[in-house]
Design a protein around this nucleic acid. Structure first.
Length: 467
RNA sequence: GGCGCCAUAGCCAAGUGGUAAGGCCAGGGUCUGCAAAACCCUCAUUCCCCGGUUCGAAUCCGGGUGGCGCCUCCA
């Protein structure tokens, strides 16, 4: 069995074969750190986090790089608004990125380069483009000369002419061609700038990715990812920059995740309907968002709504409950050691789903089928420790892969512990009115209780991390 | 104008030629002090519409209809 991935470059699913056997080099476009990230950003991060985890799960050694764009117009604007520096804005939102990403189970990349740390490489890259005649200098700006790159448009499958006709970009006097794009921007008053052979200025948006990939991953990488909206012009321009000067194809596979809508509307600043991961974690377990993002295929557009989040919260609880039941029974003292159970057929089904272009929706179907059988097993009388370990181990493997494993719960507040104890005592005394009143009170506080033969079990719907 | 995507139950969603996975919700049952959880049963003769190909189509082809994305900063 081998992994098949949909390649935006060819518009087809292709058998995945990395350039160097066993090793995968991948890059995905990270956030511009001028704000907290919203659930649309989260989708891209989660999708490529899963791609990376799955490749590792399948035995590849993966080097993954994701950038932080820490200088650009939006950051400059933000810094002015807040009366602070671009650097401070960037630093604080990078910190926020790591916090929110951790909540969502997104692992840090192997390298998270910042534009400001890559300036020398960016300037060298631009210089190479100028030297080889693919870029031209105009009044302190440096622009990429798109017609010079003969395969321009190969990713978006647009001809230069089509792009020209449909272009809504105003032709500026500096541009020779409307599709030409900026590699280096001459400084304007009040903006951060760096010294370069073309004067003070800062890099254009696209060049950072080309330079970072070249610096951290080499001339030809395996997978390049990002949101579908980055396909054009961003990735198209990266291809032009990198391939014109380096020769080698930038990436063997381009992967693009679909968009996310909010209540069937596009999420946008003008509609004011952006949902930030930070806010959402107040209301739901962040893993419910992750589950939502994995419930559909990564290329499909998905719609966020309170209803769907409620569904995901229930589904997540089902996964957790299964895990808890298995773990609880494993803790029983008098179970026989027994023999392990062969679950290869389950693993095969799971791999088959995931191998098919990371079909997480299909794979979740397998997981829930598995959960049903695991529940049946864990509720039987005649079970063994080894058997429980088999089911539990497999479930853990999958939940870890999906980044949905339950995070360790911090100790309960004293007040909650007391209430739970009080309720247990009331139940023992058969004062059920009192017991039910306490249960309702705890429910108000966000704690759901379940009475099991082995005592009370509780869980929370919301994230309990202090913010 | 160019390039591209989507349409499966109340909601979400997998399924690209062999007779509709899974989750949520809902109803019935077992269990429970009651709940919850768990399990069992029920819940699309049908996949936007119309043609066509085929022994056979949700799946392929043609034509509609409806929705969406990119071509401008954007995940």
């Amino acid at each position: 069995m081998s992994i098949r991935l949909y390649n935006s470059l060819t518009g087809q699913k292709e058998t995945f074969a990395p350039i160097e056997p066993g090793v995968v080099r991948m890059y995905s476009c990270g956030p511009t750190v001028y704000n907290y990230f919203h659930i649309g950003n989260a989708r891209a991060f989660v999708v490529f986090d899963i791609v990376r985890r799955y490749l590792r799960y399948r035995g590849y050694s993966v080097k993954f790089v994701q950038n932080f764009t820490d200088v650009d117009d939006k950051l400059i604007k933000r810094a002015h608004e807040q009366g602070t520096t671009v650097e401070d804005v960037a630093t604080s939102y990078i910190e926020a990125y790591y916090d929110d990403a951790r909540e969502l189970g997104i692992e840090p990349a192997d390298v998270h380069p910042r534009v400001t740390e890559t300036m020398g490489d960016i300037i060298e890259f631009i210089q190479a483009l100028v030297d080889s005649g693919y870029a031209y200098v105009a009044d302190g700006d440096v622009l990429f000369d798109t017609p010079k790159f003969s395969s321009y448009g190969k990713l978006s499958k647009q001809s230069l002419n089509d792009l020209e006709v449909g272009s809504r970009v105003e032709m500026t006097e500096r541009k020779r061609h409307s599709t030409d794009f900026t590699l280096w921007k001459a400084v304007k008053p009040g903006e951060p700038s760096w010294n370069s052979p073309w004067g003070q200025g800062r890099p254009g948006w696209h060049i950072e990715c080309s330079a970072m990939i070249h610096k951290h991953l080499g001339d030809h990488i395996d997978i390049h990812g990002g949101g579908h909206d980055l396909l054009f012009p961003h990735h198209e321009n990266e291809i032009a920059q990198s391939e014109s000067v380096l020769g080698a194809p930038l990436a063997k596979y381009f992967m693009h995740n679909g968009y996310i809508n909010i209540n069937n509307e596009k999420m946008s600043k003008s509609l004011g309907n952006s949902v930030f991961v930070r806010e959402l974690a107040q209301q739901y377990d962040p893993r419910a968002l992750r589950l939502f993002l994995l419930s559909a295929h990564y290329r499909s557009p998905i719609n966020y709504s309170a209803e769907v989040m409620a569904q995901m919260t229930s589904a997540l609880r089902r996964l957790d409950a299964c895990h808890e039941s298995l773990a609880d029974r494993l803790g029983e003292t008098y179970l026989p050691e027994g023999e392990s159970i062969d679950l290869k057929a389950w693993e095969d089904r799971f791999l088959e789903a995931m191998d098919d272009d990371i079909n997480t929706g299909d794979a979740m179907g397998v997981v829930f089928d598995f959960v049903r059988d695991a529940n049946v097993y864990s509720h039987q009388q005649e079970i063994s420790k080894a058997g429980l370990r088999s089911w539990l181990g497999k479930l853990r493997d999958w939940l870890d892969l999906f980044g949905l494993a339950q995070v360790e719960q911090p100790l309960l507040e004293e007040q909650v512990v007391r209430l739970i104890e009080e309720r247990t005592a009331a139940r023992k005394a058969r004062d059920f009115a009192r017991a039910d009143a306490i249960r309702a009170e705890l429910s108000e506080m966000g704690f759901q209780l379940e009475d099991t033969p082995k005592g009370v079990r509780w869980w929370r719907e919301r994230s309990w991390r202090e913010r």
